[in-house]
Design a protein around this nucleic acid. Structure first.
Length: 281
DNA sequence: CATATGTCCTGAGAGC
DNA sequence: TGCTCTCAGGACATAT
């Protein structure tokens, strides 16, 4: 499930081979599955990006962005199972898109692969792209959040802190997996109402968000047991080996060695935590 | 306004 | 073995 670290890894992986090149062609791969979500429709995207240079490759929250010469931006949301690839896909049956790139280099195509097809591809005109990049519709990037920003956001909500961490308008980029890991390291119970967190807890939360996301980026993200997530060269990430709670229900806590990891459901999403390390206040 | 729920999609795994 | 059912969750639309 590509969250901030996985999308950052994709972006870093493709950037050296994509920036500065021109999109010679954008092709929909033959795939028996339902088509991706395009906006506007594919034929219009195709017509508008063909021949455009790729000025920069960027990330905004969990989205990867190809900034084009003319000011438009092609925004790719991998959502659950989408991958940007320079080489072989995990399986050829779910290739969705191919960008044919100008010039002859080590890689001459960029691919979008998506097993479940929940991913989206959206062409933004410059003005709406600027709104996407700005804070507002999406919150500040989670890597840029300071303790003071968290304080301000947290005190306004009675929602459970785990639920708040997933709200992309509060802080952008944290998903279900990293939310559990962050709260574990912060020693905060996931059901704690956001507005009763202490100053000390907020400080720990702010530090854990940066620490976990940055470390996960260094390990090129998390490849779960389904093996879906891969970097741009179709290699597994490594951060799953550092997970302390995610998908470990019933196992002894690796932090305290005493508690047993529990699984609860909050707003229809699994949350994992150790009740001994993360006491309810 | 704040918060909660339903929907999209496919494949893996459980249970019979 | 082969069927049906449930579950996984990111982002958004719709409901409360």
């Amino acid at each position: 499930m590509p969250e901030l670290p996985e999308v950052e890894t994709m972006v870093r992986g493709i950037r050296p081979f994509v920036e500065g090149r021109t999109i010679r062609d954008l092709i929909e791969c033959p795939c028996p599955c339902k088509p991706l979500n395009y906006r506007p429709q594919f034929s219009e995207i195709e017509a508008r990006v063909k021949g455009q240079g790729i000025k920069a490759v960027r990330r905004r929250a969990k989205r990867a962005i190809l900034e084009l010469e003319n000011g438009d931006a092609l925004v790719i949301e991998p959502r659950m199972t989408g991958l940007l690839l320079l080489s072989d896909p995990p399986d050829p049956g779910h290739l969705r898109l191919e960008w044919k790139l100008s010039g002859k280099r080590q890689f001459n195509s960029l691919w979008f692969w998506d097993r479940r097809g929940l991913g989206t591809v959206t062409l933004y005109e410059n003005n709406e792209y600027q709104a996407l990049i700005a804070e507002g519709y999406l919150g500040r990037d989670a890597l840029e959040m300071l303790a003071a920003d968290w304080s301000e956001r947290v005190e306004k909500s009675r929602r459970a802190i785990k639920v708040l961490l997933l709200d992309q308008s509060v802080a952008a980029g944290i998903g279900n997996l990293y939310a559990s890991e962050i709260l574990h390291v912060s020693r905060i119970h996931p059901e704690t109402p956001a507005n009763i967190l202490s100053r000390v807890q907020i400080k720990r939360l702010a530090e854990a968000v940066k620490d976990i996301l940055e470390t996960a980026i260094l390990h090129e993200g998390s490849t779960l047991s389904d093996g879906t997530y891969r970097n741009a060269l179709n290699q597994s990430g490594g951060y799953q080996n550092a997970h302390k709670v995610y998908d470990r229900a019933g196992e002894t806590c690796l932090t305290c060695g005493v508690g047993v990891i529990e699984r609860i459901v909050q707003t229809q999403r699994s949350t994992f935590f150790c009740a001994k390390c993360q006491r309810k206040k």
